[in-house]
């Protein structure tokens, strides 16, 4: 697995907070990611949901933002001391609780993804749109959503690491 440089949490927080302000200052668009996954559906699905409101023009800023993020990850690994390393490893901790066979691992991660995708559409946003942007706006539904995110995350991880192992 690629080992990347990690800054202290508070420095990372300042950097991401400044990024969020910079984006809105430059473009007028508030930071958010999960809605963009619907843009990807717009290209392959004829369901009306993916062709109206925020998806009436799927080739929009959200799509380009989504394309940029993996390239940023690539840059982060190229600028880390260790070179890029392709691997299905999930790091020391998750490797102990998530089974090794690739099909089972893939199934669990896909399930996790489905919950993330479906849940974020039900909630109307994710950790970027609700927790970072929404709470910064003092928007109370975003604060409620963020509490829900943390409750769900704590339940899964506590069950996985304390009950299953």
């Amino acid at each position: 697995m690629t080992e990347v440089i990690v800054w202290d949490g508070w420095i990372g927080g300042i950097a991401i907070g400044l990024y969020a302000i910079f984006q809105v200052w430059l473009t007028g668009k508030l930071l958010g990611v999960s809605t963009g996954y619907g843009n990807l559906c717009s290209f392959t699905s004829r369901l009306p949901f993916f062709h109206r409101d925020s998806y009436s023009q799927p080739n929009n800023w959200r799509l380009w933002f989504l394309i940029g993020i993996p390239l940023g990850g690539l840059m982060a690994s190229f600028t880390s001391p260790e070179s890029l390393n392709l691997s299905f490893s999930l790091g020391d901790m998750y490797n102990t609780v998530i089974p090794k066979p690739i099909w089972l691992r893939g199934l669990l991660l896909t399930l996790g993804g489905v919950l993330i995708g479906y849940g974020s559409r039900l909630a109307g946003g994710c950790t970027s749109g609700h927790t970072i942007t929404g709470v910064s706006l003092l928007n109370w539904p975003s604060l409620v959503a963020s509490a829900g995110f943390f409750i769900g995350g704590t339940v899964t991880v506590q069950v996985m690491f304390n009950l299953l192992v």
Partner: peptide, 10 residues
């Protein structure tokens, strides 16, 4: 939705 998201997040 938020709790489902959280379950997947973890």
């Amino acid at each position: 939705g938020a709790v489902l998201f959280g379950l997947g997040w973890g």
